[in-house]
Design a protein around this nucleic acid. Structure first.
Length: 578
DNA sequence: GCCGTTTTCGGCCCGACTGTTTTCAGTCG
């Protein structure tokens, strides 16, 4: 079993125990374990083989035994037992907004409801009202919740959520006198996809802000509305939460509202041990009630003996332990990037010429860029055959010469995004490969290959010794296409052996490597190339998404191939060719 | 079920909003 499968079992156990009304703290342990497993940089299988299952925080004896059981047998007896007691359909019912474990248990016990369809029927027939604490309004909300589930857009890319958030913030600033309105939550942590948008507004006129918010023209309905918080559902299906607080609570409010939940739970536990209480209003002495901090986030962290932890690190994945030990990564900055190593021109499927792309790269302050047009296997992208590739290289040489003559300190690297064919061979001949400064290998076909086939294909490609960077290593498109089946651990081991760098593709639809893979690469000492895969000049600025994803993976400047100055990069490339 | 310079037993984050109630349970983040 893979980590994600094990995490899913733990989540389901937690949910089933909730429906059963089990000990809430036991439930929390299972939920926490699911998140811990999800954030591990190594597969549990390999940890188990190396005897490394001990010492994972949040995984004690009981959970460890269940992990071993799942690795050895592929199933968890406790999970199976619970599913014999309770129908699996109850887990679906929990996805209906407004229905939690208590109501699901009530409907099941009293009416035998165990599927969403049955729940919908019962609500429509007014069979629910009359049960304890259930009235007409609850029935309406359940029907609404089911409708919402059916038409749900699901999660959206960070990029799309940011645009929506910006529009709402602009509207609020225009229509009210809010001092400060900012995105918080997962947007501020730069998670790869967003389930709902969180906005924090600082103002003393709470009511005015809330009123304006629920009247937002793109809002389909008001989900909830109170004195300090409200929620709306947008016409596009996204949900937006707002919280309005006074200026002196800015730091604590931002800290609270940025999350993540697991990070905040740890922070508050730490505070409690120190006799403090942290909420969105500030940090308080638990005994005297005296307010000790709240104006800035740094003050909040300082009260519990921590330095300010950047939002990207706040996932409850060891950042607090690292902060205590003074081992937090030095945050990567956009200005650390010296060049882009994956860009297309109108020679293949890009929109702009070599010259236009280079000019934009220079404007961004880069020292270099690699032009990586497709190889011929990508027919739809007008991929280059040997003749065209060699001709493009001549053009790049001439262009570089003209830059040098003009006194410009900028170099275009002769490069290509070469397909690794289904049989593991490369889609350019030696005459082309031998003349390139930098070779980016990529998979663009055969999505249905088995894990063994795909992994073998990529490993064979890397073992040709011709590939310098493996582009978008898992091939996923966020919310559109899941990653192909591939053993990333084996790929990384091959990358170490062959000295190949892995790409963090900064396109908001890709972000591939993802954060967890980035961290694994960092731990293994594999250099990561943060590239945009730009198909137009403006897409070169997608680098920002790569930077923040890299931060989420704890990458530092020293881990990033294209944070190296040109001279060092060329030395690295040359060494690989000798 | 986890965890420990207050504890190996007894703790385990915190608050807002809704709908159902006559003071609060359930849900959510």
């Amino acid at each position: 079993m893979e980590n994600s499968g094990i995490a899913k079992v733990f989540t389901e156990i937690a949910e089933l125990l909730e429906i059963k009304g089990d000990d809430p703290f036991r439930i929390r342990s299972y939920k926490n374990a699911a998140m811990v497993v999800e954030g591990l940089t190594q597969s549990l299988t390999s940890l188990y083989e190396q005897g490394g299952l001990n010492g994972i925080p949040g995984i004690g004896l009981g959970l460890r035994q269940k992990i071993v059981e799942m690795l050895e047998t592929g199933a968890c007896a406790f999970h199976d037992e619970l599913l014999k007691e309770l129908p699996a359909g109850l887990l679906d019912i929990l996805n209906v907004r407004g229905v939690g474990p208590k109501k699901a248990a009530l409907f099941y016990k009293e009416l035998g409801i165990s599927t969403i369809e049955a729940l919908e029927k019962a609500a429509a027939a007014h069979a629910l009202a009359g049960l304890s604490h259930i009235g007409k309004k609850t029935e309406e909300n359940i029907l609404k919740g089911i409708m919402e589930l059916k038409t749900m857009t699901g999660r959206v890319t960070l990029h799309s959520a940011m645009q929506t958030a910006e529009a709402i913030i602009k509207y609020l600033k225009k229509t009210t006198n809010a001092g400060d309105v900012q995105p918080a939550g997962s947007i501020r942590r730069w998670t790869e996809s967003i389930g709902d948008i969180d906005i924090l507004a600082i103002s003393s006129e709470h009511e005015r802000i809330i009123d304006a918010f629920v009247r937002y023209p793109e809002a389909k309905e008001t989900v909830s509305k109170g004195d300090t918080k409200a929620a709306i559902a947008l016409k596009n299906g996204l949900r937006v939460d707002i919280r309005v607080l006074d200026a002196d609570s800015y730091g604590s409010a931002m800290q609270y509202f940025t999350g993540s939940k697991s990070h905040n739970v740890i922070i508050r536990e730490m505070a409690k041990k120190k006799g403090l209480k942290i909420n969105e209003y500030g940090v308080f002495d638990e005994k005297t009630g005296e307010r000790l901090a709240g104006l800035t986030e740094a003050d909040v962290y300082k009260q519990i003996g921590l330095p300010l932890i950047l939002p990207e690190y706040r996932e409850g994945r060891g950042e607090i332990e690292a902060a205590l030990a003074g081992n937090l990564p030095k945050p990567l900055e956009l200005c650390d990037i010296r060049g882009d190593l994956h860009c297309h021109t109108d020679e293949s499927d890009g929109a702009h010429s070599l010259r236009d792309m280079a000019q934009e790269a220079m404007r961004l302050g880069y020292e270099y860029m690699a032009i990586t047009d497709h190889s011929r296997a990508i027919g739809v992208a007008h991929g280059l055959d040997a003749k065209r590739a060699l001709k493009q290289m001549d053009e790049i040489d001439a262009f570089n010469a003209s830059l040098k003559k003009a006194g410009k300190r900028f170099v275009v690297l002769k490069s290509a995004e070469v397909d690794i064919r289904a049989d593991g061979t490369l889609d350019h001949e030696e005459a082309v490969l031998g003349r390139l400064d930098c070779v980016v290998g990529a998979i663009h076909s055969g999505w249905n290959m088995t894990m063994a086939e795909m992994t073998g294909r990529i490993i064979k490609g890397l073992n040709t010794g011709r590939i310098d960077i493996l582009a978008h290593p898992t091939g996923r498109l966020i919310g559109i296409r899941s990653a192909y089946q591939v053993d990333m651990n084996a790929i990384m081991e091959t990358a170490i052996m062959t000295g190949v760098a892995l790409e963090l593709n900064s396109s908001p639809e890709r972000l591939d490597l993802n954060d967890v893979h980035c961290r694994a690469a960092m731990e293994k000492g594999i250099p990561v190339a943060i590239s945009t895969d730009a198909h137009s000049a403006s897409q070169l600025s997608n680098m920002t998404y790569g930077i923040h994803t890299a931060r989420r993976g704890w990458l530092e400047k020293k881990n990033v191939l294209n944070a190296r100055p040109l001279k060092e990069l060329l030395t690295w490339l040359k060494k690989r060719r000798s």
